[in-house]
Amino acid sequence: MENVILIVHLILALCLIGIVLLQRSEGGGLGMSGGGVMTGRAAATAMGKLTWMLAIGFIVTSMTLTILAAAKTDGASVVDRIPGATAPAEPTEPAAPQTPAGGADLLPPAPAGDEPLVPRAAE
């Protein structure tokens, strides 16, 4: 069933490309030259009607293929289907910062209260 809809979808896509390329250009993108897409008057030509029918068929087959593909999924991630792929490790708590050998005399003391944040002069 899905293969048949896919083949129809591809045929519609090719026909839609062909019919759009066969239409004459009216110039001025999006109907800026007067009539066209932006006006209330619909296209009455056979080519315009055929384009609309092919576009509607293309959208319907696209939605159908999307629904069929979504129904076939089992809710698993795509990464789970790759052989040899491992799940990321559980996050752990960061380790406490370690002081270098020699103690805390290498680190300046933290300012307390209203003490200004200026570097201390070497003693």
Rank of each mutant, 00 (worst) to 15 (best):
G75T: 14
G75W: 12
G75F: 12
A76G: 13
A76P: 01
S77R: 14
S77P: 01
S77V: 03
S77C: 08
V78W: 08
V78Y: 09
V78L: 15
V78G: 08
D80C: 02
D80L: 02
D80P: 02
D80R: 02
R81F: 04
R81A: 15
R81W: 02
R81V: 02
I82T: 05
I82F: 07
I82D: 01
P83Q: 02
P83W: 01
P83E: 01
P83F: 01
P83C: 01
G84S: 09
G84F: 09
G84Q: 05
G84W: 04
A85M: 15
A85E: 07
A85L: 12
T86S: 15
T86F: 10
T86G: 11
A87C: 06
A87P: 07
A87Y: 09
A87R: 13
A87M: 12
P88V: 04
P88C: 07
A89T: 15
A89F: 07
A89W: 08
E90R: 10
E90Q: 10
E90L: 11
E90V: 10
E90A: 14
P91V: 12
P91T: 08
P91W: 07
P91S: 06
T92D: 09
T92W: 00
T92F: 00
T92M: 09
E93Y: 10
E93Q: 13
E93H: 07
P94T: 03
P94Y: 05
P94C: 03
P94F: 05
A95V: 07
A95H: 02
A96Q: 11
A96T: 10
A96L: 14
A96V: 11
P97W: 01
P97Q: 02
P97K: 03
Q98S: 11
Q98P: 01
Q98D: 06
P100L: 06
P100Y: 02
P100C: 02
A101L: 08
A101Y: 04
G102H: 06
G102Q: 07
G102E: 03
G103S: 04
G103W: 10
G103F: 07
G103M: 05
G103L: 04
A104C: 01
A104F: 09
A104L: 15
D105Q: 15
L106A: 13
L106T: 14
L106K: 13
L107I: 13
L107D: 03
L107Y: 12
L107K: 04
P108C: 05
P108Y: 05
P108G: 06
P108F: 08
P108I: 06
P108W: 06
P109H: 07
A110Q: 09
A110D: 11
P111R: 12
P111T: 10
P111H: 00
P111D: 06
A112W: 00
A112N: 06
A112I: 13
A112Y: 00
A112C: 00
G113D: 14
G113A: 13
D114K: 08
D114S: 10
E115Q: 15
E115K: 14
E115A: 15
E115M: 14
E115S: 13
E115R: 14
P116Y: 05
P116S: 06
P116W: 06
L117T: 07
V118D: 12
V118M: 03
V118L: 13
V118Y: 10
V118P: 02
V118I: 13
P119E: 05
P119H: 01
R120Q: 14
R120F: 04
R120D: 11
A121H: 00
A121F: 00
A122G: 00
A122R: 06
A122N: 00
A122S: 05
A122Q: 05
E123N: 07
E123F: 07
E123I: 00
E123A: 11
E123G: 09
